[in-house]
């Protein structure tokens, strides 16, 4: 889809900031709507694809902190999913007082385990027909889901940099358009 050529600048802090807030928002701000849409499609496709494969358990800043460092580059979406995961799906182990995902024979209930903090979600034995709100992902489903969500964050970091420093691709693009033979010789100049 042809788009108007955006103005190349050395640094575009507004576009960089918007790109941090939502995948593709920086390019949308710069007038590259189709590029922004495809960037968001790729990043959110990977992130949500990872969640589809491994469940919400793949986004976990407490138990998988190192992985979450990469996932965090997706932006507020990753932090929001992690917040929901920690507060709506996990509960405290009544013995260890550590927040964790429930076992199949447990359910969430509000109990006072720390008088200072008042009622908190705690795992208790499940009543008939009830169970934890989610199933913990294990093995390859967890690995692949976590990896996909982390790659989404790393790719969005590239997209943030591209929005922040728009002149880099502009220079390469102009050079390739001026010299198609060079592009052909370089195999498209990418991949």
């Amino acid at each position: 889809m042809p788009e108007p050529e955006p103005q190349s600048k050395g640094l575009d802090p507004a576009a960089g900031l918007l790109a941090c807030l939502f995948p593709g928002a920086g390019h949308l701000y710069r007038g590259e709507a189709y590029r922004a849409l495809m960037a968001a499609f790729g990043v959110l496709g990977l992130f949500l694809g990872g969640m589809f494969v491994g469940g919400i358990d793949t986004i976990d800043a407490e138990e998988d902190r190192i992985w979450f460092v990469g996932q965090a580059f997706v932006g507020p979406v990753a932090f929001g999913v992690n917040y929901v995961h920690q507060t709506r799906f996990k509960a405290y182990d009544p013995d260890t007082r550590v927040r964790r995902t429930g076992y199949p024979d447990e359910m969430r209930a509000s109990r006072i385990i720390d008088p200072v903090k008042g009622e908190q979600p705690v795992w208790v034995p499940a009543e008939d027909g009830r169970g934890p709100p989610n199933v913990k992902s294990v093995a390859k489903m967890n690995e692949i889901g976590t990896l996909a969500a982390t790659i989404a964050g790393m790719l969005n970091f590239i997209i943030i940099l591209d929005a922040l420093l728009p002149s880099v691709r502009g220079v390469i693009g102009r050079r390739e358009e001026e010299s198609p033979a060079l592009e052909t010789a370089q195999g498209g100049g990418d991949a």
Binding site: P2, G24, H27, R35, G42, K140, I144
Partner: peptide
């Protein structure tokens, strides 16, 4: 599980090429 490589590669390609190709054509 190995079939999941295909959609993962597709989305990686989408995100990467979105900022890599000079012309969206």
């Amino acid at each position: 599980w190995f079939l999941l490589l295909i959609p993962m590669a597709f989305f990686v390609a989408c995100a990467y090429k979105a900022v890599r190709v000079p012309s969206m054509r």
